Amino acid sequence: MTLHIILMIGLAMVWVPAQTNGLNQLPSKLYPHGTAVMNTVQQVIGAVATAVSISILSSGMDHYLHTSAETSAVSNQMAELANAMTVGSEHVFWFAMIVAVIGLVISFFIRRVIVSQASAVTSPH
């Protein structure tokens, strides 16, 4: 639970400045468009990450059940399902931690860029 709390705090500390820096790359007239694109990308990536996480969970559970099926009795089936869910959840947690660490490392390379008004692109609206 503590590692999950640290993970969520870390994601918030990286995501908000990254979004702000990304929008700062645009001229002020394009902020609404940039916000719409970032929100759309966030939702699409969230859906893809959910699908990948469920696949990892199912794969971890399936692997555990196949390796433990040879050693466990049928009467202990509910306990084995709970153990399989735990193992699959651990795999998903470690996947999320790896993605978070990669994001943290990438965040050190984010630089602030100031867009001058002379080079700003005008909005078509």
Rank of each mutant, 00 (worst) to 15 (best):
H4N: 15
I5T: 10
I6T: 10
L7Q: 14
I9F: 11
L11M: 14
V14S: 10
W15P: 00
V16T: 13
V16D: 08
T20Q: 07
L26N: 07
K29M: 04
L30Q: 09
Y31M: 09
H33N: 10
G34P: 05
T35I: 09
A36L: 09
M38G: 02
N39D: 09
T40N: 08
V41W: 05
Q42E: 08
Q43C: 03
Q43P: 01
V44F: 10
I45K: 07
G46N: 10
G46H: 03
A49S: 15
T50I: 15
A51L: 14
I56L: 12
L57P: 02
S58L: 10
S58V: 07
H63L: 12
Y64T: 07
H66P: 00
S75L: 06
S75F: 03
N76Y: 06
N76H: 08
N76S: 11
Q77G: 00
M78H: 11
A79G: 15
A79T: 11
A84C: 04
M85N: 10
G88N: 03
S89V: 01
H91S: 09
F93K: 10
F93T: 14
F95P: 00
A96F: 07
I98P: 03
I98H: 03
V99C: 10
A100V: 09
I102S: 03
G103S: 08
V105T: 05
I110P: 03
I110K: 04
I114F: 05
Q117N: 12
A118T: 13
T122C: 01
T122R: 11
S123A: 07
